[in-house]
Amino acid sequence: MYPHERSLVKRMAGKPFVLLGVNSDPKDHLRATLKKENITWRSWWDGGNTSGPIAQAWGIRGWPTLYVVDHKGVIRHQHVGSPGDEVLDAELEKLIRAAEATKE
């Protein structure tokens, strides 16, 4: 996931897009991963295990799980496991174009 996410964030810079993580690792582990993998996007820290409050509230049962939310805050896609880079890119690009079109 990391290389694709890095390129996604870079490619979408300046566009109405943001990647946000909800992370289930212990704090020291997360800190090391952010550094090692050069992760620049923000993550909520969800209590250090897979039973954290955010994962519980969203009913997450597998990792990774991805949600694509449009510019109005509506959930448009959900994926348990990566759907593949091309599928995800196409979904995001379509919604980003819609977000740009509604901008004044």
């Binding site: 943001v18 993580g21 909800v22 997360l30 897979t50 977000a99």
Partner: peptide, 16 residues
């Protein structure tokens, strides 16, 4: 999450 309204958001529930 609502801080980012107006943007398309990819939420990634992840662990290492």
């Amino acid at each position: 999450l609502s801080d980012y309204r107006g943007k398309v958001v990819l939420i990634d529930f992840w662990g290492d």
